[in-house]
Design a protein around this nucleic acid. Structure first.
Length: 331
DNA sequence: CATTAGTG
DNA sequence: ACTAATGA
């Protein structure tokens, strides 16, 4: 879900190696700056229109300095890059990546675990009692969470969700966003947005409503939701399972006030590139668009009050951006 | 970049 | 209050 449409990925392999190196800097070396360096370099590499052939050409790219240029050339000359190969093989890299498969475990904990000699998921199990609830659940379902979710399964979950929500409160609206809404054949997780027919953002500033929690309870009661990773007033992260024969799935449910619902749907439907372009277009048209609202830009360039939105389509109309069905927002 | 959990 | 982790 991340390629440029103009010049069909001529340097894709190079940018992948860069991204992998960057990820390693992040996860293993905890160096977020180098991580960023690699990302920007990777980006300018992908959308460079022709295959990179010289260090000069490489170094001319934004974010590519002497070091990265060398790595690129190394990669171009041989089919690979020595540092990358070495990094891939390093035991700590492998162990950390294994540990990172567990939801709730990030680079910090992974490093600490390594130091304590916990370098595999099996060993992690031996100290499961020291983990947080989130991590325990992540551990319990590591394999299941890595499985893709067929659209048909999400469809069933959707109708179930809708039914439960309605039976429990007629004024709740829901939309499953993400790649599912874009009609992908399968998705990595389930991203649900809900709102209430008459809850506004202003009132949410004061009274913290319980619609999300109540919804989660009823979904728990009916057995669809099996575990909870976290639950606040506006965001639930957890686990659901359609039926005994299905794997457990990651599901997120967020509650939005009605006046932010459509911008939210738009945003969470993505994909990222589509969002970027749409936002940029909004700017050209003198608006600012984000996950919460569409606002008109004053000549001073300061955003005014959020424009009242009552459908996703309206957003397109305001900034006159040709409407795209979710299915063709895969930029 | 904002929301939650957990700790001290 | 701070820190880690998710996610999009």
């Amino acid at each position: 879900m991340s390629s440029s449409m103009s010049s069909p990925a001529i340097n894709a392999d190079i940018s992948e190696m860069l991204l992998e190196l960057g990820k390693h800097e992040m996860n293993v070396n905890q160096n977020r700056f180098k991580y960023q360096m690699y990302r920007k370099a990777a980006k300018s590499v992908v959308d460079h229109p022709k295959r990179i052939q010289s260090v000069a050409e490489a170094k001319g790219l934004a974010g590519v300095g002497a070091k990265i240029a060398l790595k690129i050339m190394d990669f171009v000359a041989n089919g690979s890059n020595r540092q990358l190969d070495r990094v891939r093989q390093s035991d700590t890299n492998q162990s950390i990546n294994e540990l990172l498969r567990v939801s709730g475990i990030g680079p910090k904990l992974a490093a600490k675990l390594m130091a304590d000699g916990i370098d595999t998921i099996d060993r992690l199990r031996t100290i499961a009692d020291t983990l947080t609830d989130h991590q325990k659940i992540g551990l319990k379902y590591v394999d299941e969470f890595e499985r893709k979710i067929p659209r048909e399964e999400i469809q069933k979950i959707e109708t179930l969700l809708t039914a439960k929500m309605n039976e429990f409160n007629k004024n709740l609206l829901l939309t499953i966003c993400g790649s599912y809404r874009r009609e992908a054949r399968e998705s990595g997780d389930i991203d649900v947005l809900i709102t209430h027919r008459n809850v506004t953002s202003d009132q949410m500033k004061f009274k913290t409503n319980t619609y999300l929690k109540d919804s989660v309870r009823s979904l728990q009661k009916c057995g669809l939701i099996t575990d909870r990773l976290s639950l606040g007033d506006t965001k639930f992260m957890g686990v659901c399972r359609l039926s005994k024969e299905c794997p457990h799935r990651r599901i997120d449910i967020r509650f939005l006030p009605l006046d932010q619902y459509f911008c939210g749907i738009l945003y969470f439907t993505g994909n990222d590139f589509f969002n970027q372009q749409m936002r940029k277009h909004a700017n050209e048209m003198g608006f600012t668009l984000n996950e919460y609202s569409l606002r008109r830009l004053g000549l001073t360039s300061v955003p005014g009050e959020p424009i009242a939105i009552t459908s996703e389509k309206e957003i397109f109309e305001y900034i006159d951006f040709p409407y795209k069905e979710p299915r063709d927002r895969n930029f």
